[in-house]
Design a protein around this nucleic acid. Structure first.
Lengths: 345, 345
DNA sequence: TTGTAAGCGTTATCAT
DNA sequence: ATGATAACGCTTACAA
């Protein structure tokens, strides 16, 4: 492998000069263009690449960003990852993927590993369960920027990028209301999940302000977060057993909506002709579901983008003055995407 | 940060002894248990972690495995990633995620970066287009184990884990045949995509051996690989414009099947009552689609597992005798997963 | 049984 | 304007 010393020999300049040129170091301001050219040309010709290990050892920087996801096969994660990758391209950072598998032990294990590897930051896609904060806190305390995606962080020193759940739920309901729906059913998220409460507040606020009655018979609550599609399916079946007196459903999220739609179709109820359905998230499959799902989009890609830009800023600051950037909280406004699963009464 | 030298001072032993103990080096066989204990205890107490940068510099090993995907938001990739991550857990390797975005320029860019970072291997999820081989070849030539997932590699020095497409297509068709279907339509994959031809061979072989006529009117070919769901939708609409004389469809893959189902539903044709549909891949969404899709599963998770085990073996060999393991080709037998999108005539 | 010292490749400091 | 040198922290051949 070609080293800078070898390059020095071949070019007749010293390693120092070469390093200064190749890194455009401010300390090498005075090196004449002619020298620079010679060095650059030779480096290119010989295919010289600085050894990252040596660099890292010198600078104690890994140029690695850890991306933690609760479960890689969750389509929600995939979109966020997309955003992260796009934003990271062009920077000198490479993402290290860490899949927690919704598992506490793995979480601990990886937290250690990441420390040892000296990753320069961690972007963690929020788990529906709240496992994370404590361990992430450990990382943050060690001076590593931690950014949580998808949930507001209360913890000092942890940044977050999340969605305005309240507004999201409100515009979903508003859409149905405007389409003339008055008998609307709800599949609420599990109590444990933080988002549930917020979304429900959006619902009840809108209901109050528009004098829409919320019938308890039309409200089902999900049990836990695993396989929301199955849960949506069951919830809808339960709903249908009790009553058919509704013309629309607000589902907790897209996966729930998918399950609900299946149950409706199976019961011979057509979506959207006989019953409208709205989801939340705008997961990729929403666009090609049968029928394509009207849903609240909060551009998970954008969540990822924002997460990266917070990280990049923190990393830069850290490199400069060795100080730690204080945590940032950002919130994204959601948007309704109207597809084929909703229609007028 | 605590160094081995500091630990040496505190313990009264030399850095050498400490290194030998902490790494269970064969060279340190003769160190008595008592010393070992003392050292281990102190290291644990002080929370000593060896600096990976220094280690890497010494050993020129990065303990990083690059995972290249054509498009992270493709559900096919997600499943493979899951398998890779699961298999990598417990090893000392961490996956570096590289999303090519179906883009040649990015591919080149990342190939360079990965070389510089000295990743110890590359697992590349096959692109539907054939961009890859040349650049991957460059990596392989440099002695980095390259494993392609999802397509047979012809290139010397590149390993691969792929699916028996022929068998897969055959069992899909066979299933419909056994359910009594005789007028069967086909949405063929794009010509460019290698898998298309293989799957079609499986189809025509079965047709021949069972005297099933293949009616040209019932065969549509897709144009390119982008957004196969949309293409499936269009293909089915085209099919329906020409004729309705079929009771079942074999789609190129799951995404195509999703599109086809949407078109059928939209035309008032019920799946599976009026028309059966089979897919290929068993993407996650297949399980919760409306209706849940009968499809050929080739456990992409397992593809990922196998890819990792090939890599791990190669990496170990490389570490030992510095030699490069010769490329391995593996093929997985697919399996039919019967769900709700197919029924008897 | 344990310790000394060299070297991995880079870059920052200081000298020329 | 350019170069010599030391240091980053670890491992390992060799010495004691």
């Amino acid at each position: 492998m070609l080293t800078i010393r070898e390059l020095a020999k071949q070019s007749g300049f010293s390693p120092t000069t070469i390093s200064l040129v190749l890194n455009d170091s401010p300390a090498g301001q005075h090196i004449p263009e002619k020298t620079r050219q010679k060095i650059r040309d030779l480096a290119a010709k010989l295919g010289y690449h600085p050894n990252q290990f040596a660099r890292s050892l010198r600078s104690s920087r890994s140029y690695a960003l850890a991306v933690m996801v609760p479960d890689i096969s969750d389509p929600y994660c995939a979109q966020v990852l997309l955003g992260i990758n796009k934003s990271l391209f062009g920077s000198k950072y490479l993402p290290v993927l860490v899949d927690i598998q919704n598992n506490r032990a793995r979480f601990r294990h990886y937290a250690r590993t990441l420390l040892e590897r000296r990753v320069e930051g961690v972007i963690a896609v929020a788990n529906s369960l709240q496992l994370q904060t404590e361990i992430l806190g450990t990382l943050a305390k060690r001076g590593i920027p931690v950014i949580v995606i998808g949930r507001e962080s209360t913890h000092q020193g942890i940044s977050s990028v999340s969605v305005d759940n309240e507004t999201g739920a409100r515009i979903a309901l508003e859409h149905l209301y405007e389409k003339g729906h008055r008998r609307i059913a709800f599949i609420r998220g599990p109590r444990k999940v933080v988002d549930s409460a917020r979304r429900w507040r959006g619902i009840s606020d809108f209901a109050k302000s528009s004098a829409l009655p919320l019938d308890k018979k039309l409200i089902v609550e999900m049990k836990d977060a695993a396989s929301s599609s199955e849960e949506g399916f069951e919830a809808m079946k339960k709903l249908l057993r009790q009553t058919r007196g509704f013309t629309a459903v607000v589902a907790f999220d897209d996966m729930t909506a998918f399950g609900a739609i299946r149950a409706l179709t199976q019961a011979g109820i057509k979506v959207p002709e006989d019953c409208s359905v709205v989801g939340f998230d705008d997961v990729a499959a929403a666009a090609y579901y049968n029928p394509p799902l009207t849903t609240v989009s909060h551009s998970m890609e954008k969540l990822g983008n924002l997460g990266v830009s917070i990280f990049l800023e923190a990393a830069q600051k850290a490199g400069k003055d060795g100080r730690i950037l204080k945590a940032t909280q950002r919130k994204l406004e959601p948007l309704l995407v109207v597809r084929k699963s909703t229609s007028t009464v």
